[in-house]
Amino acid sequence: MNIGEIAKRAGVSRSTVSYALTGKRPVSEETKRRILTVIDELGYRPNASARALKEGRTRTIGLVIPPASQRLTDMQLGFVASVVDAAARADLDVLLSPSGGEHERSFERVVTGRRVDGVILMEIRLEDDRVARLQGLGLPFVGIGRTRHPEGMSWVDIDYETLIARCVHHLADLGHRRLALINRSAELVAAGYGPGHRAQAGFDRAIAERGLRGVRVCCADDAQAGQACLQQLLAEHPGLTAVATINEAAVSGMYRGLAEAGLSVPGDFSIAGVAAQRWAESLHPPLTAADVPADELGARAVELLIQRVADPGTPQRHLLLAPPISLRATTGPARPRD
């Protein structure tokens, strides 16, 4: 059913129906009642543009995700799904937009084209031009992640520094003295990817506190890279007995690398990390990990954004989570290998 049919049944012009829906021009109360009666009888629902004009809102939020050229990790997919689910519960639509490199025009269209009421940013860098851009535009936004100076924005995040430090302490308690941190890709870390830098800081701090020997490496987000990374670590550091990691997508490859070296998990080698719970539990053996509550983070990000859209002057809010480590089947007492 379209506006033309409504106009015909109400005995008014199409423009009058449009004005009644959008409030763009005054329409007499009697005419408006007649139009609304026809709309109720026909079950007509104004399109999104008409609702936006009437309400001053689009009822759509933007979710800025990593570039389409990158395969999203299970954790990232969890964030996307939880944001979409929480938005749906609030009767909001979600417009997905990749950012980075050739996708910057997509980001600009989303934030400058009145297409969304606010934005949720993923994969935030320590110094992030997107954050500065949104602050300059005055468009409400919330980060899943935070910058180096996070006070000027609302955000939810995982405390990677604390969690990787806990992984190191857990492994040290099991007698492991030589450990490695397997981070995300070198490109991400070089670009200022926050979790990568905070994981390094937590690893270095815990290694120093426990008097351990540690090595840090970067690894692409896939199983093949994880296998190659583990093989290289074993070749260059033969006394290594454990790994801490935030690279969940590479873990299954690490398992293969250990198996090819004739090492069992956790009998000969231990692995602990930060990962999505479903992913950690689906691995064989299940990964000892701090389980990232992606559902909660996505829902809280939507909640904070709704608050900022309703009242842009509301104080910035921050949520930093450090979930406990779930002990599964990939960590055990150290067995010296040198």
Rank of each mutant, 00 (worst) to 15 (best):
P285N: 11
I65P: 02
E30R: 14
A294T: 15
A272C: 11
A132P: 00
T288V: 08
P26T: 13
V12G: 11
G192P: 02
A280Y: 09
G262N: 12
Q224T: 15
A206S: 13
A165C: 04
S97E: 07
P333K: 12
S97Y: 00
A249E: 15
T60V: 09
G136E: 10
L233V: 05
G113C: 06
V110S: 03
G298D: 05
D157N: 05
A52S: 11
T60K: 00
I158Y: 05
D338T: 15
D338Q: 13
V168I: 05
A276P: 01
R33H: 13
A276K: 10
V116P: 00
D173S: 10
E41V: 05
T22Y: 14
D295G: 02
V116Q: 03
I3R: 10
G11N: 14
V17T: 10
G138Q: 08
P238Q: 15
P67L: 08
E296Y: 03
S15E: 14
A294N: 04
L258Q: 11
L53P: 00
V116G: 02
I182L: 10
T58G: 02
L139E: 04
E5I: 14
L327P: 02
D85C: 00
V142D: 05
R216E: 13
S106R: 07
S82I: 06
G211P: 03
T330Q: 11
Q307S: 08
D222H: 14
S264Y: 13
L95V: 07
V251N: 10
R198E: 13
V309I: 14
F269M: 14
L234W: 12
L163K: 03
E236L: 11
A261N: 13
R105H: 09
V189T: 14
Q135V: 06
A88T: 07
R337W: 07
G332V: 11
H284D: 15
M153Q: 14
E30M: 09
R278F: 15
E281K: 11
D128M: 07
M254K: 07
L137Y: 01
L163H: 01
D129G: 05
V217D: 07
A294F: 00
T73A: 06
K54E: 06
S49Y: 02
A329R: 13
T162Y: 01
P238D: 15
